Structures are given as structure tokens and as C-alpha cells.
Amino acid sequence: MTYTVYLSGEIHTDWREQIAQGAKAAGLNIRFTSPVTDHDASDAAGDHLGPTSEGFWRDHKSSKINAIRTRTLIEQADLVVVRFGEKYKQWNAAFDAGFCAALGKPYVTLHAEDIIHPLKEVDASAQAWATTPEQIVEILRYTLNA
């Protein structure tokens, strides 16, 4: 069986690659998907729909185009990993976690201990909370091979 895992959240570090490499090294049959991780491309997703007079409308159009990909890939995933980084607030990641909760889609959060409090509701609905990509790989290994 091929397991599909959607990797949501922070785009400024290599955590996705660490998980993919760890899963490959463990011999896990996993297909990883993710949002667009090129920040400029994501921000410009709706630019082809015409110019806007304010930044709000550019973001509004692009977020709707990005949502087509995000919603589809989350719905198709067997599991979602939601990463909250340290440098930026990933409101989109919190939204993805809420979408998973609403769908009954299993998800795991990945974040440092110092943001447990602001993520308490997000973590409360998650199947697990991890602090390292290696812990995510171990969850995947167990889920597929136990």
C-alpha cells in the first residue's frame, strides 16, 4: 500500500526533506505532498486574474487559488503533518489543522515546546505532537509496519 502524507506549514527550513529522507531510509512506501513552498510563487498564484488596487485583494485571490491545491491534497492524504516553525506565525497551518479536524482526517503537529500554549487547541485534536522530523518518521514507520 502507498501511504499519502501531506506536509503542511512552515516553508523556511528543510523539515520536509528530513522526513522524506528518513522515510526513504526506513523503506517506507510513502507519497509526500505539500503546499507550494516557493513563497513568491504562492503569493502570486492569483496574479493572472488581473491587477488589484490593494494588497488585500492580491492575497485574497492568491489564497483562493492556493486553497484548490491545499484542500484537494489534504482530502486525498492518509495523514497530515502540520509544522509550526519558530520564526513566523503559520496561520495557514492552523487553518489546515482545523480543516483536518473538521474532516476527521488524522493529523500530527510538529513544533517546539515553547509554543505549546498557543497551540493547545490544535494539539488537542491532533493524534500526536512531535518535536523533530525523526519522531514523525517513527510515527510513519509504526503506522505502516506495526
Rank of each mutant, 00 (worst) to 15 (best):
residue 84 F to R: 10
residue 44 A to Q: 14
residue 43 D to K: 12
residue 9 G to V: 07
residue 58 R to W: 01
residue 95 F to P: 00
residue 110 L to Q: 01
residue 76 Q to A: 10
residue 62 S to K: 08
residue 26 A to S: 15
residue 8 S to V: 09
residue 28 L to M: 08
residue 29 N to C: 05
residue 77 A to N: 03
residue 43 D to T: 09
residue 125 S to T: 06
residue 137 V to P: 04
residue 84 F to Q: 06
residue 127 Q to T: 09
residue 142 Y to L: 13
residue 77 A to W: 02
residue 133 P to C: 03
residue 61 K to W: 03
residue 52 T to G: 00
residue 87 K to E: 09
residue 35 P to Q: 15
residue 27 G to M: 11
residue 113 E to L: 11
residue 47 D to W: 03
residue 68 I to E: 15
residue 35 P to T: 08
residue 14 D to T: 07
residue 109 T to Q: 04
residue 5 V to M: 00
residue 132 T to K: 10
residue 104 G to D: 06
residue 116 I to H: 14
residue 51 P to D: 14
residue 43 D to N: 09
residue 131 T to N: 13
residue 19 I to A: 03
residue 3 Y to F: 14
residue 67 A to W: 12
residue 39 H to V: 08
residue 52 T to Q: 10
residue 67 A to Q: 12
residue 97 A to G: 08
residue 90 Q to D: 15
residue 86 E to C: 04
residue 122 V to P: 02
residue 73 L to Q: 14
residue 126 A to T: 01
residue 84 F to A: 04
residue 122 V to E: 00
residue 37 T to Q: 13
residue 9 G to F: 13
residue 111 H to T: 00
residue 112 A to D: 14
residue 95 F to E: 06
residue 51 P to C: 01
residue 19 I to G: 02
residue 35 P to C: 13
residue 76 Q to M: 11
residue 97 A to L: 05
residue 125 S to D: 04
residue 90 Q to K: 05
residue 90 Q to R: 03
residue 87 K to I: 05
residue 139 I to E: 06
residue 20 A to T: 03
residue 29 N to E: 08
residue 16 R to K: 14
residue 123 D to H: 00
residue 39 H to N: 03
residue 143 T to M: 12
residue 128 A to I: 01
residue 104 G to C: 09
residue 102 A to D: 04
residue 40 D to V: 11
residue 139 I to N: 06
residue 88 Y to N: 02
residue 5 V to D: 02
residue 14 D to A: 08
residue 3 Y to E: 01
residue 11 I to Y: 10
residue 145 N to T: 15
residue 137 V to S: 06
residue 110 L to D: 00
residue 50 G to D: 00
residue 74 I to H: 05
residue 96 D to S: 05
residue 100 C to K: 12
residue 104 G to T: 14
residue 74 I to S: 07
residue 108 V to H: 01
residue 128 A to F: 13
residue 33 T to I: 11
residue 11 I to T: 13
residue 132 T to V: 07
residue 31 R to K: 12
residue 17 E to K: 08
residue 130 A to G: 00
residue 20 A to Y: 00
residue 137 V to A: 05
residue 111 H to V: 04
residue 57 W to E: 10
residue 44 A to L: 11
residue 101 A to E: 09
residue 20 A to I: 10
residue 92 N to C: 00
residue 40 D to R: 12
residue 43 D to F: 13
residue 45 A to L: 15
residue 132 T to Y: 12
residue 119 L to E: 03
residue 102 A to H: 07
residue 44 A to F: 01
residue 33 T to L: 05
residue 62 S to N: 05
residue 108 V to M: 13
residue 128 A to D: 14
residue 131 T to A: 11
residue 20 A to Q: 14
residue 34 S to N: 04
residue 8 S to A: 15
residue 105 K to W: 01
residue 103 L to A: 13
residue 138 E to V: 07
residue 121 E to D: 10
residue 70 T to Y: 01
residue 16 R to C: 06
residue 50 G to Q: 00
residue 113 E to I: 03
residue 49 L to W: 08
residue 112 A to F: 09
residue 124 A to R: 14
residue 123 D to M: 12
residue 4 T to Y: 06
residue 137 V to C: 10
residue 54 E to A: 02
residue 38 D to V: 11
